[in-house]
Design a protein around this nucleic acid. Sequence first.
DNA 1: CTGAAAGCGCTTACAG
DNA 2: CTGAAAGCGCTTACAG
Lengths: 331, 331
Amino acid sequence: MATIVDVASLAGVSTSTVSHVLNDTRHVEPETKARVMSAVQTTGYRRDALARSMRRARTDSIGLVVSDAGEPAFADMVHGVEEAAAQHGLSLLLANSAEDPARERSAVEALLDRRVDGLIIARAAGSADGLLERIREEKKPLILLDRLADLDVDQVGVNNHSAMAALVEHLTVRGHQRILLVSGDLRVSSLRERYDSFHVAMLARGIKVTAGLLCEGTVTTAATFDSVRTLLRSSPERPTAILACSTLLAAGALRAVQHEGLRVPETMAFATFDGFTYSDLFEPQITTVRQPAFHLGESAVRLLMRRLETPSAPTKILRLDSEIEFRRSTE
Amino acid sequence: MATIVDVASLAGVSTSTVSHVLNDTRHVEPETKARVMSAVQTTGYRRDALARSMRRARTDSIGLVVSDAGEPAFADMVHGVEEAAAQHGLSLLLANSAEDPARERSAVEALLDRRVDGLIIARAAGSADGLLERIREEKKPLILLDRLADLDVDQVGVNNHSAMAALVEHLTVRGHQRILLVSGDLRVSSLRERYDSFHVAMLARGIKVTAGLLCEGTVTTAATFDSVRTLLRSSPERPTAILACSTLLAAGALRAVQHEGLRVPETMAFATFDGFTYSDLFEPQITTVRQPAFHLGESAVRLLMRRLETPSAPTKILRLDSEIEFRRSTE
DNA sequence: CTGAAAGCGCTTACAG
DNA sequence: CTGAAAGCGCTTACAG
């Protein structure tokens, strides 16, 4: 591979001049410049980004750690981050923690070792705050994505509260009082927020939430299926509606509903956060709080660029609105 | 940030020794080693992967370029690649060409500039072979993923032929002769293979394939919807079954079917490649050729590791089998 | 307008 | 068993 030295000697100039021509960082005689460019051509020279990064103390790359690469919503976020990064000329280093704090930690360390210019993280469920401290020590710009924290850090997530309020209103207006909430792992901030908002919304309408109508802590479709099925059977008063807080939870709950011979929406209303793709094409057509996942990813990059340009800027916390797709499952 | 020099001086040894301790690359007295490790501790030293890469001419990173990060199948492949890369201690640089050859080219150049150890590419629809030549010139290990080529390059894709043959048999055995094939962009090798295999399979059963039963070239859901709707209306003899070659095509076709007031499977059988997630939970339950997308990604990394270890190994082309999920849509 | 040279933080022959 | 030093391929003050 040709190096800058090869180009310089072929063009009969110093490496300084080649560098300056390539980066357009100081004036060079048009004639000299032309000689350099032609030398670049004939040698097939390509600047080594590694060497460049080492000198500049900038890598023009960012790191993204997602907590569950298998979830469609996270795939969309990755897509959004990639798109925005490419637009800004940044390379994207991707890692997946698979909800495992240990893997998350080693992913972050690897990214730090590679001297990424900044980090975007959707934290794993049991992630400790120590990790964020660690990143802060390194003075590395950090953006929290989707899984937010009550910390002085730039972050972007969705407005779970308003979405949940709208959903609860939608259901209660239609007469539903016994709503089964399938809330999942409450260590996940977004799920915790939905859980809390549910209680707030129900309380505001004077509806009591009983333990028999709460399914929490399940982290797989299978476990959710079991748990929901048990609740459906044992509840003294069967719920008239089910509200799932993620795609995975919805899948488990829906399977339980079908297994119990219930029909959506005839004998059971159903709504979910995140949801399924192409929901309009299939029955039951499920009312869905659709998060702007792609947009979330883009926004995270935007926040990161801002932080990179203005390290002293005040902390910014963005809450994007979800769209609620009302469908027959709640009619 | 502490450097190796800081560690060396604190431990009272040379940087050589620190390096050798860290990499376990030559014997060091236990006592000296302990002093080094403790100096690493107190300085909080972390080796700079950039500087290390520059000397070693290895970055322990790989590049992945996918053609459509929005498609669930590609998201799964990315997931598989990430997982396998992490297991091998490799960092993953991700880019998305969005089916645009120009973006694909610049993504590859950026990856090459970053000196990734190898590339995995699912090529864009109109991608020219020149790009692959370019990579070969750089002597950079390359694996083709999903979108294969008739070239002397390591590659891993699915066995489209056998899947299509099974699908056609399944349909014809049930009396379907007029099968509408929705085949998409034939510049995409996997779609081209499915298209060709369809013709082979139909021919083998002595069934004529007419132009009125071929919908090709559409690249969006909307265009597919229009095209399929037109075919459904204008065909002298309406098809009794529809066979879509990707998720996107299936969505457009299904929408057209519903728009025309047809019902699956009562008045129209339906099957698709790739398909929708949680297909078993929704109606119509669609017969689906499920590609092992995650596994495809993993295999690509395995092929790459093999090539890295044995540059002279013979070219390997892997074809993984898809699973066919037979459901009510074709009964 | 351009060049000589230092230096980014490592690894690795070479020497003892 | 360990160290001094060259060098990976760039960028960038410094000097003229």
